[in-house]
């Protein structure tokens, strides 16, 4: 089953106003479960808008988004929040963590909104395991302002995984770090993808980052301009579609 099905997706900001902007037009794509995909394009091309539609943060003006077989166009705001919390993890470019919470509390945050039972049912243990996975065990009690940019992104990855989502959406996750740290973060995400079969969709303007992914969907002026498979799921180089 496809993790994501997008059909004829369109987003128009300030609909009806003279200064309306067509952010996305007629986007149709399918991403299979367990894929490690990049949405690549320059700034303003529509990457973030597409990710926000996939993450159910933004209602498209037209078309539909199907996540794990669920047609999200018919869902109300509460149902979208439920699907988002249960099936989708997010990593942003910056400002991922709440400044009032410790790293561990930030990782536990999705469980807070999933209900008390999630927190009690081994949630803390899972959060600690994930912090261990991303190499952040020693910083569990630290506040976000005590972390480096790389540590913040690692903590954000742990938080994105805490509810065992099927899909992680990362919007320029390496945008604020140097090249070496960028490679480390990409490697970490790739390892998680390979180990747990979580689908990753990473938006980036950086060609080097995009080239590390198994598949690159290029987007420009709100339209898909190319869809290239660089590697097979097992990491071997692939032909281009």
């Amino acid at each position: 089953m496809a993790a994501i099905e997008v059909r004829d997706l369109g987003v128009r900001y300030r609909q009806g106003a003279p200064n309306a902007v067509q952010a996305l037009s007629a986007i149709t794509l399918s991403i299979q479960a367990g894929e490690f995909v990049s949405v690549a394009g320059r700034a303003g091309s529509g990457k973030t808008t597409l990710l926000h539609c996939l993450g159910l943060l933004l209602q498209p003006t037209s078309g539909l988004v199907v996540i794990d077989g669920i047609d999200t166009s018919a869902l109300d705001a509460g149902q979208r929040a439920e699907v988002r919390g249960r099936r989708i993890g997010f990593v942003l470019r910056e400002g991922n963590l709440l400044s009032g919470l410790t790293v561990l509390e930030n990782v536990l945050l999705p469980l807070r909104y999933a209900g008390a039972s999630m927190l009690s049912r081994g949630g803390r243990a899972r959060a600690r395991d994930l912090l261990d996975l991303v190499g952040m065990s020693d910083q569990a009690g630290d506040r976000p302002d005590q972390l480096t940019a790389a540590q913040t992104q690692r903590a954000a990855i742990a938080r994105a995984l805490v509810r065992a989502p099927t899909l992680v959406l990362a919007d320029e996750p390496t945008g604020e770090v140097d090249a070496d740290t960028s490679d480390e973060l990409l490697y970490l995400m790739q390892q998680v993808n390979r180990m747990s079969n979580v689908t990753f969709v990473v938006a980036t303007h950086d060609r080097d980052v995009a080239s590390c992914m198994d598949r690159v969907i290029r987007i420009d002026e709100g339209r898909v301009t190319a869809d290239e498979r660089l590697r097979l799921a097992d990491g071997r180089r692939s032909g281009t579609r």
Binding site: L57, A77, A81, G95, L98, L109, Y113, A114
Partner: peptide, 16 residues
Amino acid sequence: GREIALKMLVGARAWH
């Protein structure tokens, strides 16, 4: 605003 959006990002509903 961003902090609230982050909470919505991780599953918080409007009533939360």
